[in-house]
C-alpha cells in the first residue's frame, strides 16, 4: 500500500480526551500521522513528541541582521558618504542611531521569522490545504493515522485502538 494516501481518522470532541488519547495511541504502538485541531491545544506537541520550534532562533538571527544593517547604513551615510555637522555633534552620533537601529532590528526579526514560518508551514495565498475533515476548523479534533505506515495493524485494529481511547467517530479518508 502506498504511503500518505489512505488514512484512518479518529474524531475527538474534547481536548483533554484527545491529549490522553494521543499518549495511549502512541503507547499501543500505532504511529500517528498528525493531529488536526480548530484551536491550539496546549501540551499537544509534547505528547506527540514534537521538538520545540526553532523559529525563535531564526527570529534572533534576523534581528541581529537588522541591527547590523541599520548600524552600517547609518555610519556609512552620516560619517563616510556625506559627513555633516548637525547640532555640533560628532558625525557618528551613536546615541542618535539607537531608535532607528532598534526599529530595524524589530522589523527584520518579525518579518524574517514570519517568512520562515510561512515557508516551513507551507502557507501561501495559492496554497491548498489537504482537508481530512471539514470540522477541524469548527469543533472537532481529528487524529489521522496512515494505514501504510502501520503495517503491523490492520485498518480494523487501528479503528479499535482509536475507539478505545475515546474517539466519537472513526472514519476512513483516501487522497488521490
Amino acid at each position: 500500500m502506498e504511503r500518505d494516501k489512505n488514512f484512518v481518522l479518529g474524531v475527538y470532541d474534547d481536548e483533554d480526551v484527545l491529549l490522553d488519547a494521543v499518549t495511549r495511541v502512541r503507547e499501543s504502538g500505532v504511529k500517528i500521522h498528525e493531529v488536526y485541531s480548530p484551536f491550539p491545544v496546549h501540551g499537544l506537541d509534547d505528547v506527540l513528541g514534537y521538538k520545540r520550534s526553532r523559529l525563535p532562533i531564526a527570529a534572533f538571527f534576523f534581528g541581529l541582521l537588522g541591527t547590523t544593517l541599520a548600524l552600517v547604513m547609518q555610519f556609512y551615510m552620516m560619517k563616510i558618504d556625506w559627513p555633516m555637522i548637525i547640532g555640533g555633534k560628532d558625525y557618528a552620533a551613536i546615541p542618535d542611531f539607537v531608535p532607528v537601529t532598534f526599529e530595524l532590528t524589530v522589523l527584520l526579526a518579525a518579518f524574517g521569522m514570519v517568512g520562515v514560518f510561512m515557508i516551513s508551514s507551507n502557507l501561501k495565498p495559492w496554497g491548498q490545504a489537504r482537508i481530512f475533515d471539514l470540522r477541524i476548523t469548527d469543533d472537532k479534533h481529528v487524529m489521522a493515522i496512515d494505514i501504510a505506515n502501520n503495517a503491523g495493524f490492520g485498518e480494523e485494529a487501528i479503528g479499535d485502538v482509536l475507539k478505545a481511547t475515546g474517539a466519537t467517530e472513526v472514519n476512513k479518508k483516501s487522497f488521490e
Binding site: 506527540l48 525563535p56 526599529e103 514560518f117 507551507n122 502557507l123 491548498q128 476548523t137
Partner: peptide
C-alpha cells in the same frame, strides 16, 4: 486564498504559538 492553505495540524499550531509569542515579545518594546 486569505487562509493561505491553513490545515490546522498540530505541528503548524505549535509553530503558530511560538510565532505569536515572539511577535508579542517584539511588539511590546515596539
Amino acid at each position: 486564498a486569505l487562509a493561505f492553505g491553513w490545515d490546522g495540524a498540530a505541528k503548524t499550531w505549535s509553530r503558530y504559538e511560538s510565532v505569536a509569542l515572539i511577535l508579542a515579545g517584539l511588539a511590546t518594546p515596539l
